[in-house]
Design a binder for these strands. Structure first.
Length: 153
DNA sequence: GCCAACGTTGGC
DNA sequence: GCCAACGTTGGC
């Protein structure tokens, strides 16, 4: 799951512990949350668009079942969707819980350097990847955790 | 700020 | 259903 650290960082998540992942307005990303996420699923927390230190910043977990994003019903919200109704919600989210902040951000650069390990299809190094929520395999997750423990050169 | 790579919208 | 125009994301 991606977030721009200026808007919401791993430090913010550590402070609040649990955050409803609202505001996702992309159907594919919504489907991943609505259809595929289970409570307790491990999550890579990625800092996108960072001034520096773009990369995986820590670990999180799915902390709720999927439910309707309340911001879609709120005319005051930036995420308001006039076509959504409580009877027929269009957007869904899960709560995300803090697990761990990496001592150092695992830089995108390093992910790219380890493409053979992670696989060329690893979502964070794939070209044109713009989904804020996307799946990784268990193997990829483990590899990322392992890489986070190695020192930067 | 630029640009590539999308996704969405709307006219037809 | 097609496609141009437009908007957004994200790396650099």
């Amino acid at each position: 799951m991606k977030s721009e650290p200026d808007a919401f960082s791993i430090d913010d998540l550590e402070r609040v512990k649990v955050e409803p992942w609202n505001g996702v307005r992309n159907y594919q990303a919504r489907n991943y949350m609505r259809d595929d996420m289970k409570v307790g699923d491990p999550v890579l927390f990625y800092h996108s668009n960072a001034a520096k230190e773009t990369g995986v910043a820590g670990l999180a977990k799915v902390a709720s079942k999927p439910y309707a994003d309340p911001t879609q019903f709120d005319p005051e919200s930036d995420y308001y969707d006039p076509k959504a109704t409580p009877e027929e919600p269009r957007w869904f989210l899960v709560d995300v819980g803090f697990v761990e902040k990496f001592p150092q951000v695992l830089l995108l650069e390093k992910l790219k350097a380890n493409a053979p390990l992670l696989g060329e299809d690893f979502v964070l190094i794939r070209k044109g990847n713009r989904l804020s929520v996307a799946p990784v395999t268990a193997e990829q997750y483990k590899s990322v955790v392992k890489l986070s423990k190695t020192k930067r050169s």
